[in-house]
């Protein structure tokens, strides 16, 4: 008994050293990544004065909910929240559909000119028209200041499409198509009945990628939208956050500008929390698809 225990310790010494060192490094990394989030959370529950005078270090100081009350009272924020949800939902649906309907044909070996098509798609990943031509394009398409300008530009993400294509190519055997064709299945039916159900994992990944992108997008809204009631949450948030970063030497009346700052201090942290929580919640659910293989058993049946 004693001997065995001794043996086990002596054999795993290298492991032990490894575990201690890697455990230590990982803990340091974890603290570094976690601290800002804990700080934001604590600050959002603290009083404005405590935040702006730097009293919040780890735990909330002068606990209160003023920030959250302001967030949920503010019509702009609620409307922007709704807009973001809408843009994310519709935008993601378009992104995922586009990626799939492009990726599937390109994954088929019997598609003629496949290499050339891929080249064209890939080309757009490295070269874009630039900001001004894009602006003129959007303007001539009459998309300016509409709902669609938030979901249509970049409808197809070439990167996601390539990932999807590779997935379909490698995980769905070509023989399945042959078998299905012999049974009288046409291409459309094959796509909906075989490819889609077998691509759940990649659909989940795609959905997560695009949803996060849409959730965080602010640049298009900034450039193309002119009405306040169309703006997504990120733009309203940015508006509040930049109040804190004014360059005082540029202002005509700095004393007046300083007065604006305090009221914003708490609100901004509450807003960050409110804006981040939905995406944080979505991660664990999508994550299982990253790990779990879907192909187990599918060919056998």
């Amino acid at each position: 008994m004693n001997n065995i225990a001794k043996n086990r310790i002596s054999t795993s010494r290298d492991d032990l050293v490894y575990y201690i060192i890697s455990g230590f490094i990982m803990s340091v990394l974890l603290v570094m990544a976690l601290y800002p989030m804990v700080f934001v959370l604590s600050a959002s529950f603290s009083s404005g004065d405590a935040v702006s005078s730097g009293k919040v270090i780890l735990w909330p100081v002068e606990l209160n909910l003023e920030g959250y009350k302001t967030v949920f009272r503010n019509n702009d924020i609620l409307r922007a929240y709704w807009n973001t949800l809408l843009y994310t939902a519709v935008g993601t649906l378009i992104n995922v559909s586009m990626a799939l309907i492009t990726a599937y044909p390109l994954s088929r070996r019997d598609l003629r000119g496949r290499g050339f098509l891929m080249l064209i798609f890939t080309f757009t990943m490295f070269f874009s028209g630039g900001m001004i031509p894009s602006y003129i394009n959007i303007s001539n398409l009459h998309l300016m200041n509409t709902f669609w300008v938030m979901v249509l530009p970049g409808a197809l993400s070439v990167y996601n499409m390539i990932v999807t294509r590779t997935f379909i190519q490698t995980s769905i055997p070509y023989e399945m198509l042959e078998a299905a064709s012999i049974d009288g299945c046409n291409d459309t039916k094959y796509f909906f009945s075989f490819v889609l159900p077998l691509s759940k994992a990649i659909i989940a990944v795609n959905t997560l990628f695009s949803a996060v992108n849409h959730w965080n997008a602010y640049f298009n809204a900034m450039i193309y939208l002119n009405d306040r009631d169309k703006l997504p949450l990120q733009n309203i948030m940015r508006e509040l956050l930049v109040l804190n970063e004014m360059n005082l030497s540029d202002l005509v009346d700095p004393e007046q500008a300083l007065l604006m700052l305090n009221s914003v201090a708490v609100l901004k942290y509450a807003l960050i929390v409110v804006a981040t929580v939905p995406i944080l919640c979505a991660y664990p659910f999508a994550q299982k698809y990253f790990v779990k293989g879907v192909m187990i058993g599918s060919v056998k049946g």
Binding site: L93, S97, L141, M144, T146, F147, L152
Partner: peptide
């Protein structure tokens, strides 16, 4: 799902022609 997406795309086409005046700010 796919059909509704395609429909939505179609609707978008109509929507934007209605808003033809939106060329510039």
């Amino acid at each position: 799902c796919m059909l509704s997406t395609i429909l939505a795309c179609g609707a978008m086409g109509c929507g934007s022609t209605k808003e033809a005046a939106d060329q510039s700010p």
